[in-house]
Design a protein around this nucleic acid. Structure first.
Lengths: 237, 237
DNA sequence: ATAATAGTGTCTGTGAGACATTATACC
DNA sequence: GGTATAATGTCTCACAGACACTATTAT
């Protein structure tokens, strides 16, 4: 056997949220070399006695002051030989979906933290291979909205159907029919549970409040209208 | 910053195939400590100048003599602090789907290699956390058959619809209606492409041969009949 | 002809997309 | 009443499931 080559292992976080109808990601400005001053995904080294998911939660808190609510899952690992100029680093990327956040606080290793619209990220060159990781995270989120109730992770504990629809529209960047959406969501068992209360709003009829249901997957997915696949010739009157 | 704790990084492989109508996995018998003599997933240490996917391909060849055809994708990473008694090891698990294989050859580090039916694996206690990794790989494969044409990875380059259906039935462990399946597969653009030739068989009408199409995802998934989700009350005449 | 496997056709209920109307609040 | 937002209803087509028949080979 070839022995045990030395590696460092990090976790990086794709933290997504919806703000003002736009899908956004949390970025930090690097305070140290390499890529000092560049924007990057939050993350850091895994500690010797720490599991990967625990490291992700810890780094999220340390670098941004966010207590992990919402959803956190492993995304993928990235370990190209020279992705970090210092040494051989394998990073285990995680995907976090959170309700709209208070402005993040720059942590120990970060010179700053900011929530940036996905559409605006391409203007910034992210450090390392973080552009690729971010793209993978966004695609994962978009895909998972189709067949899981994960969009609820972007919402506060109690939410309206219109708010949930706004999440889909923001993540997919597409308008959805409010009536069909309402029928689909309320008609899918386990997707949402009615709270019984209604919102108090400025204008218009108050909306019913819901909380998340017990389902973890959606039989009969919600399909993105203009999906990348071959068009099936469905009617478009 | 806390410095760079030393880790070892390995790749492990969940190699699935369909043999005699049963979903099977490739296991190796460990020839070295720890867990010497126990069955495990094939895998090994990532080399200093090697990307993760490259390591997976290399280990597959080294430990089993299999040249990677078919499909290979990253599954997930596992890094609990004491999952390997020797040292801190993070493993990046990969999922490989292959057509039925010639009997594997035990490689350098393995005392033996064997293709085992998934249903029979629970009788063997696998080394490390490999039972969990295997379960995750099987579930990934089962789920992906629904919304990708990945079942074709289990087939030789040219195959019949009945053979493809046998793959679904083996992986899901469920019978499928041959007529509805044929209609679905041939009616989904990009799923399969007709070769034009027909099989030469012992008995019965010869079957048309197909090869894989260009599609990578299936709009309108093939749903597992008795899925885990909430029943929708669909008619069952 | 018989057996065996391959492939096509029909019926029906459910679900999704397109679209209009009613309901409930505030001004 | 006017305005704004929430929620429900209707129609139609497509697709999936249940099911029966025809087609093509070998014996």
């Amino acid at each position: 056997m070839a022995g045990y080559p030395p590696f460092a292992v990090t976790v990086d976080l794709v933290v997504l949220t919806v703000r003002d109808g736009e899908l956004c990601v949390l970025l930090v400005r690097r305070g140290e070399a390499p890529y000092r001053g560049r924007w990057a995904l939050p993350g850091g080294f895994v500690r010797p006695d720490e599991d990967l998911a625990d490291a992700a939660v810890r780094e999220l808190g340390e670098e941004t002051g966010i207590a992990a609510a919402g959803h956190l899952e492993q995304l993928a690992s990235y370990g190209a030989p020279r992705r970090d100029p210092r040494m051989r680093v394998v990073t285990v990327a995680h995907l976090a979906l959170l309700p709209d956040l208070p402005p993040p606080v720059a942590g120990t290793d970060a010179a700053g933290a900011e929530i940036v619209r996905i559409a605006d990220v391409s203007a910034r060159k992210l450090a390392f291979d973080h552009s690729r990781i971010l793209a993978d995270g966004v695609e994962r989120a978009r895909a998972k909205l189709e067949y899981t109730p994960l969009a609820i992770a972007f919402c506060p504990p109690e939410f309206t159907i219109a708010e949930l629809r706004a999440v889909y529209e923001a993540v997919w960047g597409l308008p959805l029919d409010p009536r069909n959406f309402h029928r689909k969501v309320t008609g899918t068992p386990g997707f949402v549970e009615p709270v019984g209360e209604a919102t108090v709003r400025e204008r218009g009829r108050p909306a019913q409040l819901f909380r998340r249901g017990a389902a973890t997957v959606l039989r009969l997915p919600i399909l993105r209208p203009g999906d990348q696949g071959q068009e099936t010739g469905r009617q478009r009157r």
